[in-house]
Simulated scan of single mutants.
Amino acid sequence: MTEVLLRDVDDADLEVFYEQQREEEAVRRARFPARDRDRFLTHWRTKVLGNPTGHVQTVTVDGEVAGNIVAWWQDDRRFVGYWFGQRFWGRGVGTAALRQFLRREQVRPLHADLFVGNTASVRLLERCGFRSVDTDRDGDPEFVVLRLDEG
């Protein structure tokens, strides 16, 4: 049986996250361009890990780093986002990890915005109770906003 766990981020995890965000299929599905190493590490160390209101967790599968889940404030809304290495897709890892994260992250409503064509990610969020509330983010109708109100 696969053991999916959350833990605090170690500096060594950033190298794994960097490689995962470069995977071509993940970039295509997320419609989020990969960053070069210096920009990626600077972003993570200053904006993600350096954000005192953020909630950041490494996701492990049987002890191996599978990805990450992050919650942050953007304007007056709390958002959640995640990124998993491609070899962990389709195994229930995302659903198990997000359900654990949502038990720890108590702010509601909680939002997620993603490329509307990333149907696997939309389904993952819906399995965890999120519902579509908007199909326009910053004037871009190709993105959908989902919201979790309770749970």
Rank of each mutant, 00 (worst) to 15 (best):
E25T: 11
R87A: 11
Q57E: 13
F115C: 00
V93E: 13
H55L: 10
G67R: 06
R123E: 01
R28K: 11
A30E: 14
F143G: 02
V144G: 01
S121Q: 07
V9K: 08
R35E: 08
L49P: 07
D38P: 11
V133H: 02
L6R: 04
I69C: 01
V70D: 05
V27M: 12
F84Q: 07
L110K: 04
F32L: 14
A112Q: 01
Q86P: 00
D11F: 03
R35K: 14
R87V: 10
N118E: 12
D134Q: 12
N68W: 11
R104W: 04
W73K: 02
R137Y: 11
T42H: 10
D13A: 00
N68Y: 07
Q86G: 12
Q74T: 08
A71H: 04
A12C: 12
R87C: 09
Q106P: 00
F143W: 15
F79R: 03
P52W: 06
N51E: 04
G63I: 01
G90V: 06
R131M: 01
L102A: 02
Y18G: 02
L146N: 03
P33M: 03
D75R: 11
Y18T: 05
D8Q: 13
A71I: 08
D38S: 15
L146C: 06
L14K: 14
G81C: 10
E105S: 04
V4F: 04
W73P: 00
F88E: 01
G129L: 03
D149G: 13
R104M: 06
Y18K: 05
L114E: 07
L110C: 10
R103E: 14
P109F: 00
E64T: 12
T58H: 05
V56D: 05
R28S: 06
Q86K: 14
F130I: 02
D76R: 05
R37Q: 15
R29H: 12
V93P: 04
E64R: 09
F115T: 03
T135R: 15
L49Q: 03
V65N: 04
D8G: 08
V133I: 14
F32I: 14
S132V: 08
R87T: 12
R103Q: 09
G151Y: 01
V27H: 08
T42Y: 02
A26P: 01
R77V: 05
Q106L: 05
A97F: 01
R28V: 08
S132P: 00
F40L: 07
D140F: 15
H111T: 00
T60M: 13
R123K: 09
V80C: 08
D113C: 12
G94E: 13
L98N: 09
D149N: 12
V93S: 06
A96E: 15
G50C: 05
V59E: 00
G92Y: 15
D140C: 15
D138K: 13
T135P: 00
G81W: 12
R31G: 13
D8Y: 09
P141E: 00
V4I: 11
D140K: 15
F88T: 05
H55N: 04
R99F: 03
Q20A: 12
